[in-house]
Design a protein around this nucleic acid. Structure first.
Lengths: 136, 136
DNA sequence: GCTTGACCCTGTAGCAGCTACAGGGTGCAG
DNA sequence: CTGCACCCTGTAGCTGCTACAGGGTCAAGC
């Protein structure tokens, strides 16, 4: 007989909140588990593995929909891994776009900060930086 | 008599969605404007300036709460601008943290992609990268 | 005078991805 | 048998919008 445990242990074993686990179940990321007589969810070792996979991919910034897709693909062991590869590459590109956006934004903020020479709000150049002037 | 116009013009003048303008009003970012006899909101030039400020600061990644604070501070013209300065610096630090997080994440994704040598899903090393092994 | 169409109004629901209850049941130790 | 930790369901809240439904307004054209 395998080791079985309730949702609290799964939560501490994976670092995923109990409410979040139930949410993932509703969202179709993890399968509805067996229940005890008292209607408690019971999990096994495989569930820890799967939930850790979910947590890891979420931490890496994949959306729930992408995680669902990755889980589905990872279950088809004999399939070519090209699709997975492509998904990760696309996500990498997305992350690169976000970094570029934030870097541009960072520069604007740094410029704003550099422009401030103290004094009153009326004199503050930061606010000018935030007030796009669009002609006379 | 000043130029007055309805919400549609304000939207096109600022590039902010009509629904979003009304949302900002509900959220207390912009004051409820005067109304016409037919209950239409009417705006003036000053509203364009203020809404552009909101849009710009939102684009720079400030939360609505921060924008509210910035607006409040910018109205106190005689006050020292140190508080504004501090807010922008804190936000800059926040952006730096996000860039750092994304950069770390980017590296992990790149490593995952590099580890893939094709073949079946069963052989794919990307999935191993996503499955944190924690013990025997 | 009447219709068409562009515009405006309010109120509510939806999105992601959780998180936080309320109001109950279960299970075990003392 | 009582207390407490744990679990259950269902629903509402968060941010920052966006998208309706179901109505009213207003100016132009015939």
């Amino acid at each position: 007989m395998k080791t079985q445990f309730t949702i609290g242990k799964l939560a501490t074993a994976t670092g995923v909140n109990i409410e979040t686990i139930r949410y993932y179940e509703r969202a179709g990321l993890i399968a509805p588990p067996a229940r005890t007589d008292g209607n408690y969810r019971t999990y096994g070792e495989a569930d820890i593995t799967r939930l850790r996979f979910v947590k890891r991919t979420r931490d890496l910034g994949f959306t729930l929909e992408q995680v669902r897709a990755l889980l589905g693909l990872s279950d088809q062991r004999e399939r070519d891994c090209g699709t997975i590869d492509a998904m990760v590459i696309e996500h990498l590109a997305e992350v690169d776009r976000k970094i570029a956006d934030l870097t541009a934004l960072r520069r604007e903020l740094a410029d704003a900060v550099a422009s401030c020479e103290g004094g009153t709000v009326a004199e503050c150049r930061i606010l000018e930086t935030f007030s796009p002037t669009v002609g006379s």
